[in-house]
């Protein structure tokens, strides 16, 4: 098991290197003079020259790359012109908001999508199956910003059930003390029910948006995998052995069907990380996506770069986690390595 994890870590390394190289190249591809860019619009030529030296832009490309890696290792992603803070500090402050939202969305999608897929697969051709398939096709075609806005219109404007889409907490609730950065977890740790409820309320619509977006692919894959597994030889064996339907469905079919689903979770998560940006914009969610968008508006590249890098690293880490989870479920992976 440990050896497998080690191998997975090694396998993830090229991806990490690729991510660092690409972000470096993108940085150098910025239009105009990067020094002038980083110095800001009001800088004098002298100041620009100083910045050029300070940034190492007078050196050769490989040397610059070396410097870039050195800064990364030190945890230095530059300074945001907008906030005046180090980008790393900004990201650290805002990451929990993004993660809390994305994970809630993913969990919701799994909690609804997997049962929906199973339901459709165990009743192929039934009306339930047809409805599920239509939902899946519709879900795949729905632009996230569109579904988000529809949700806001219906549940905030028309029905008034949801709070205004303005961030993680309403104006009257103070944020809980920061332990993990997740308002839900922190408020629970503080045993503060009011804050928990307030945070949960704010989370409902954005989570639903993300969940809806990820629902279709998860349900689709679950359904296809389940259909394949239910027609497999070993499920037939379980049936011929007279095992209870529940055992057949959950122990024999579902566990095998989950393998492709777990693999697909990585892609779905990557998709959600992208969707997250849009959702944060619509719900004024103070995460790293909206941080990056604010920086875009002011042509401030360092935060964008930090954002891309962070997202890519989260994705790499998640893929690692999925590989390990896969190994836990599938003995063929666990033992053969």
């Amino acid at each position: 098991m440990l050896r497998m994890i080690g191998r997975r870590l090694a396998a993830a390394l090229p991806g990490v290197i690729g991510v660092i190289v690409v972000t470096f190249l993108l940085n150098r591809a910025l239009p105009g003079d990067p020094a002038a860019y980083f110095a800001g619009p009001a800088a004098t030529p002298r100041a620009i020259e100083e910045i050029r030296v300070k940034l190492g832009l007078d050196k050769s490309l490989p040397e610059q790359f070396g410097l870039y890696v050195r800064d990364l290792v030190r945890g230095d992603l530059g300074t945001s012109l907008t906030t005046g803070q180090p980008v790393v500090a900004d990201l650290r402050a805002r990451l929990p908001a993004s993660l809390e939202l994305t994970l809630c969305g993913l969990l919701l999608a799994i909690a609804v999508g997997v049962p929906l897929g199973i339901f459709a697969a165990t009743r192929p051709g039934s009306w339930a199956d047809h409805i599920a398939r239509v939902l899946m096709t519709m879900g795949n075609s729905m632009p996230v910003f569109f579904s988000a806005l529809l949700l806001v219109y219906v549940f905030y404007y028309l029905l008034g059930w949801a709070p205004a889409p303005l961030g993680r907490l309403d104006a009257f609730t103070p944020p809980p003390g920061s332990v993990t950065g997740s308002f839900l977890v922190d408020s629970l740790l503080m045993r503060d029910g009011t804050v928990f409820l307030a945070a949960a309320k704010q989370l409902v619509l954005p989570t639903a948006t993300l969940g809806l977006a990820a629902l279709a692919p998860i349900a689709r894959i679950t359904r296809a995998a389940m259909l394949g597994v239910l027609a497999s030889d070993y499920v037939r064996t379980a049936r011929a052995g007279g095992l209870a339907p529940r055992t057949v469905l959950y122990v024999y079919a579902l566990r095998n069907a989950l393998l492709p689903v777990v693999t697909a979770l990585g892609i779905v998560f990557a998709f959600l990380l992208g969707v997250n940006v849009v959702v944060e914009k619509i719900y004024a969610w103070p995460g790293i996506g909206s941080y990056a968008l604010e920086a875009v508006m002011t042509s401030d590249y360092a935060p964008v770069q930090g954002f891309v890098l962070t997202m890519a690293m989260i994705y790499v880490a998640l893929n690692l986690l999925i590989d390990i989870l896969y190994g836990v479920i599938d003995p063929r992976v666990r033992i053969e390595t």
Binding site: S232, D233, Y234, T237, A240, G241, L243, R332
Partner: peptide
């Protein structure tokens, strides 16, 4: 009871074979 053609495919690939026998016994 039936012993299927192609036994390898007829056994659950991710459940220890002993457990598969026990499933039938317990039932």
């Amino acid at each position: 009871a039936i012993a299927f053609q192609n036994a390898r495919a007829a056994l659950n690939p991710i459940r220890p074979v002993g457990r598969q026998i026990e499933d039938v016994l317990l039932r």
